[in-house]
């Protein structure tokens, strides 16, 4: 569906069900240069099982209008406004990669609004490889190719997509190239590289938190994910073997199972 935040069009997938304000809200926040489509194997399930879902396209990404936001802090503020704009007082957040930085920052700023926080392939900081950052800022498609290489584990590199007939690396590449690389990936990578408040923000988080990490994640290694999780009171950690940074697609079923258990027990659906 489309709605407005700060006067700009925002697109969000509602998971294939009409948006229903009477149901608890889960907001999904994608990673650098990507779109709402990375969440398709989680969102539809929740939408069909008692939740209202918004898998957002961040400003300037996917089908949303406006320009890409330049800092993680601005993105966190913006998520707060999304919740207001759709007429909710509270929501659960799910983030992937850069989306983890955004949701950590958002949860620390709005402790009353955020009811649960789920982090996929998250870390307290995501310093960028300078060469990758520069390629993305210079609109070089090689930035996408490198990201797809590093972001995928064996499932991505060999294949074996949970949805029959889909090929991970090329699908990811097309998502990341769907808008101008320097305006999406370039701005996002810079925002990640600049963001230093992750560990401080994490210490302030009081809501139930889940981290899903993957053994073959080269972008946000397990070690970094655990460091972050250790700072969040009572946070749960789930580690997936033989899987890369794109766990939400590479091991979509496993991610959904863990997420389902965590969200339904801490923020029950309305059926």
């Amino acid at each position: 569906m489309k709605f407005k935040v700060n006067g700009e069009d925002v697109y969000a997938s509602t998971g294939g069900r009409p948006f229903d304000k009477n149901k608890p809200l889960i907001i999904f926040v994608h990673g650098s240069g990507l779109t709402h489509m990375t969440w398709v194997l989680q969102t539809r399930y929740f939408a069909f099982h008692g939740y209202s879902v918004l898998a957002l396209d961040m400003p300037g990404h996917g089908l949303s209008g406006g320009k890409s936001l330049k800092s993680i802090e601005d993105m966190a503020e913006w998520i707060g406004k999304v919740i207001d704009s759709v007429g909710y007082k509270e929501a659960s957040l799910v983030g992937h990669s850069q989306g983890c930085l955004v949701t950590i920052e958002c949860t620390s700023r709005y402790p009353d609004k955020i009811k649960t926080l789920s982090l996929m392939g998250g870390a307290g900081a995501i310093p960028m490889n300078p060469e990758l950052l520069s390629l993305a800022e210079n609109n070089d498609p090689k930035a996408v190719d490198l990201m797809m290489d590093w972001a995928h584990g064996p499932a991505g590199h060999f294949g074996g997509h949970p949805v029959p007939g889909l090929y991970h690396i090329n699908t990811g590449t097309m998502l990341a190239k769907s808008r101008t690389i320097q305006n999406t990936l370039g701005v996002d990578f810079r925002a990640c590289d600049n963001y230093k408040n992750g560990f401080e923000a994490a210490k302030k988080i009081k809501c139930p938190t889940l981290s899903i990490l993957a053994t073959d994640d080269k972008m946000c290694p397990v070690k970094e994910g655990k460091k972050l999780a250790a700072l969040i009171d009572g946070s749960q950690v789930d580690i997936i073997d033989n899987c890369g940074h794109m766990m939400l697609l590479e091991e979509a079923d496993r991610v959904l199972k863990v997420l389902k258990k965590f969200i339904t027990s801490n923020y029950p659906p309305k059926i």
Partner: peptide, 14 residues
């Protein structure tokens, strides 16, 4: 399907 998609540089195949 995945093999041919990968060889063609495509996202998906049937």
């Amino acid at each position: 399907e995945e093999r041919v998609a990968s060889l063609e540089g495509g996202t998906a195949a049937l």
